[in-house]
């Protein structure tokens, strides 16, 4: 079957556009990357509700905090690396600490940011934001889920970090339907090995599961669009049903989905967890697909890990 490819960042702005009528106090901020985050499309429709802060990510996040203190619902948009590293203090102290209703729309996250190289590839953002109390982290798996996540965040109270990618990735009908913050999506129930993914690499996870099933290995497949708070119940169930867990994420293995899963199972139901992700290295320039190969973020890497666990 031919897969349809769409961008999660497009899902973000399409979600914002659909919310505009419902939430008159919603405003969108950007920091001179509106053409990349796609928020220029929102600006074109609602110029009076769009604020381009220029190359000022730090100011933008604190301004967003101020807007929320007066009852607005600001979506502050920039690349993940800027939102969390450049403006990490503002995210922590202006937004997370006072638990303000600010939404961060972070695009160009992960290694698939591609040609810009390691300086712009945010592979640490989940780790940083997970460590801030009060934050909710949503990492949608495709265009449609990005739209659903954006809308869910807008309607919920509190600070959110929404993580989107740059490139077009497969649309995955298995993860559509109701979007519930904090809930994992169990795509398939199985008994040999569990695979847990977040973000756009859900497509690699599905491919790995299909290949393993074809080889007679039963896979319990979970997609986790909410990385914080983590769906503990779904993770423990996966550990109980299977002989081990493979996680896959477009992020460092330090502090991301995989470490979160390992932390939960080590307390609740110890089992082996192998983590596919950036292995504590910086990325480099290249095309997204080349980089996924080079850094081992593919279905075949999931399969290898699964077989290692199963022995």
């Amino acid at each position: 079957m031919e897969l349809e490819y769409k961008k999660t960042r497009q899902g973000y702005v399409d979600g914002l556009k659909e919310l505009a009528g419902e939430l008159p106090d919603m405003v969108v901020l950007d920091a001179d990357v509106a053409k990349a985050t796609q928020t220029f499309e929102f600006e074109a429709l609602h110029p009076d509700r769009f604020f381009n802060c220029g190359v000022q990510e730090q100011n933008m996040l604190s301004v967003a905090a101020g807007l929320s203190l007066e009852g607005m619902i600001p979506f502050a948009s920039t690349f993940g690396v800027f939102a969390t590293c450049r403006a990490g203090d503002q995210l922590r102290n202006s937004i997370a600490y006072p638990n303000l209703n600010v939404k961060i729309g972070a695009t160009h996250c992960g290694i698939t940011t591609g040609g810009d190289g390691a300086s712009h590839q945010s592979n640490e953002d989940i780790a940083i934001v997970r460590s801030f109390p009060n934050m909710t982290i949503l990492v949608p798996g495709d265009y449609e889920e990005a739209k659903l996540a954006t809308k869910a965040a807008a309607r919920a109270a509190g600070p959110f970090y929404l993580r989107f990618g740059r490139d077009a990735y497969p649309v995955i009908p298995e993860i559509h339907g109701a979007f519930e913050i904090g809930k994992a999506k169990v795509i398939r129930i199985g008994k040999d090995i569990a695979i847990i993914s977040t973000g756009i690499l859900v497509s690699e996870a599905i491919q790995a599961a299909n290949d393993l099933e074809a080889q007679g290995i039963s896979v319990h497949l979970i997609h986790m669009p909410t990385v914080k708070p983590m769906d503990k119940e779904a993770i423990v169930e996966a550990a109980q049903r299977t002989k081990g867990i493979v996680t896959i994420e477009e992020h460092s293995v330090i502090g991301g989905l995989g470490e979160g899963v390992a932390g939960i199972v080590s307390q609740e139901h110890p089992t082996k967890v192998l983590r596919i992700g950036m292995q504590d290295v910086f990325g480099e320039s290249g095309q997204a697909q080349e980089l996924l190969d080079k850094f081992g973020l593919r279905a075949k890497n999931v399969i290898e890990a699964a077989k290692k666990i199963l022995g």
């Binding site: 730090q58 604190s62 301004v63 101020g66 807007l67 202006s94």
Partner: peptide, 11 residues
């Protein structure tokens, strides 16, 4: 931080 936050409120 407080300067920017104040500006967001004023906006």
């Amino acid at each position: 931080l407080g300067i920017s936050t104040g500006l967001g409120m004023a906006l």
